[in-house]
C-alpha cells in the first residue's frame, strides 16, 4: 500500500515520468548494444565523414568511418556503469564518514568534518583530472577519482541527518531501553535518513555521468571502451566540417543527465513530501 502511494506521488510529477521513460530507453540501449551493433564500435564499418542518414548510416560516421549510432549505444554502457559504480563508492565513503561524525559527535565529528571540508575546498574537477592522469586512465581509476571528489556532500548530508535523528526522542528512547549502537544505527536512524540519501544519490549519478564524459572528452577516458565524451572530444577539431560527430553523442549525454535529474526530483517529491511545496501558496 505504501508503494502505491509512492508511485502516485512520483507520477504526479510529469517530468519525473518523462525522465524515467528516457532512462528506460538508455538502459535498454546499453543492455542490448552488443545485439543491435554486434561489431565493435571501434571498427571502421563505412566510409568516413558520412552525414546522418547517408548510405544506411543512421547518425553518420566519424573521421575514421566508425558508426556514430553504434558508438552511442555502446557508450551508454560505459556512462551508466561508471555513473552507478562511482556513486556507490561515493555513497559508501560518504555515508560511513557522515554517519560516524553525526552519531558520535565530539572530536570524531570535528576530525572527520575538517577532512571533509578539505575535500570540499579542493577544486574537484581538477583533482579528478590529476588523479586519472597520474594513475593512468582505466575504469577503476576513473570510478575511484569520481568517487573521491563526490563523497563530501553525501557525508555532510548523512552527518546532518544522523545528528538530527540522534537527538530525536525516539533514538534516545532506544538508548534508554538498552539497544546496542548497531541496532540504533541500522534500525532506528538509517531507515529514517534514507529518503534524502536516495534523492541525493540519484542526482549524484547524473553528476558522475557528466564527470566521466568530461574526463573522456579530455582524452582521459578508459582507452578500451567507447564513450560519449570521447566521441565529442575526438570530433572537436572537425566541428566545422562534421557537426553530427559531436552533436549526437553530446545530445545523448544531455538526455541521460536530464533524465537522471528529473528522476531525482520525482523521488524527492515522492519521498520527502514536506520538502515538495507545490501548490502551496
Amino acid at each position: 500500500m505504501q508503494s502505491m502511494n509512492f508511485w502516485r506521488a512520483y507520477a504526479r510529477n510529469k517530468g519525473a515520468v518523462i525522465g524515467l521513460l528516457i532512462m528506460a530507453v538508455v538502459v535498454v540501449l546499453g543492455l542490448f548494444a552488443p545485439l543491435i551493433y554486434p561489431e565493435s564500435p571501434w571498427d571502421m564499418v563505412n566510409a568516413p565523414f558520412l552525414g546522418p542518414m547517408e548510405e544506411g548510416s543512421l547518425l553518420g560516421t566519424d573521421t575514421l568511418g566508425r558508426d556514430i549510432a553504434s558508438g552511442i549505444a555502446h557508450g551508454a554502457r560505459v556512462s551508466l556503469l561508471i555513473g552507478l559504480t562511482s556513486t556507490a563508492v561515493a555513497l559508501v565513503i560518504g555515508v560511513t564518514l557522515g554517519a560516524l561524525a553525526g552519531f558520535f559527535g565530539g572530536w570524531v565529528d570535528d576530525t572527520l568534518m575538517r577532512f571533509t571540508e578539505l575535500f570540499q575546498t579542493i577544486p574537484n574537477f581538477v583533482l579528478t583530472v590529476v588523479l586519472v592522469a597520474i594513475f593512468t586512465p582505466s575504469q577503476g581509476s576513473i570510478v575511484l577519482a569520481i568517487a573521491i571528489v563526490s563523497w563530501p556532500p553525501l557525508a555532510r548530508l548523512a552527518r546532518a541527518e544522523f545528528m538530527a535523528l540522534r537527538s530525536r526522542e525516539f533514538v534516545q528512547a532506544a538508548i534508554t531501553t538498552g539497544q546496542s549502537n548497531a541496532t540504533i544505527i541500522f534500525r532506528e536512524i538509517l531507515p529514517n535518513s534514507l529518503s534524502p540519501l536516495i534523492v541525493s544519490s540519484s542526482l549524484m549519478v547524473a553528476t558522475a555521468v557528466l564527470l566521466e564524459s568530461s574526463l573522456s572528452f579530455l582524452g582521459l577516458g578508459d582507452p578500451n571502451a567507447m564513450s560519449w565524451g570521447y566521441m565529442v572530444g575526438a570530433a572537436r577539431t572537425v566541428i566545422r566540417q562534421a557537426w553530427w560527430m559531436s552533436f549526437f553523442p553530446g545530445l545523448a549525454i544531455l538526455l541521460t543527465v536530464l533524465a537522471l535529474n528529473l528522476i531525482g526530483e520525482g523521488l524527492n517529491d515522492a519521498l520527502n513530501p514536506r520538502v515538495a511545496r507545490k501548490g502551496k501558496a
Binding site: 530525536r168 526522542e169 525516539f170 533514538v171 534516545q172 534508554t176 531501553t177 538498552g178 529514517n192
Partner: peptide
C-alpha cells in the same frame, strides 16, 4: 546497562518519540 530496566523515561514530544518506521 542493568539499570536501564530499573529507570525508564517518558519523553516530551509524542510526535518525535516514536520511530515512524516501526
Amino acid at each position: 546497562r542493568p539499570f536501564r530496566r530499573e529507570i525508564q523515561m517518558v519523553f516530551q514530544d509524542p510526535y518525535a518519540s516514536l520511530n515512524p518506521r516501526r
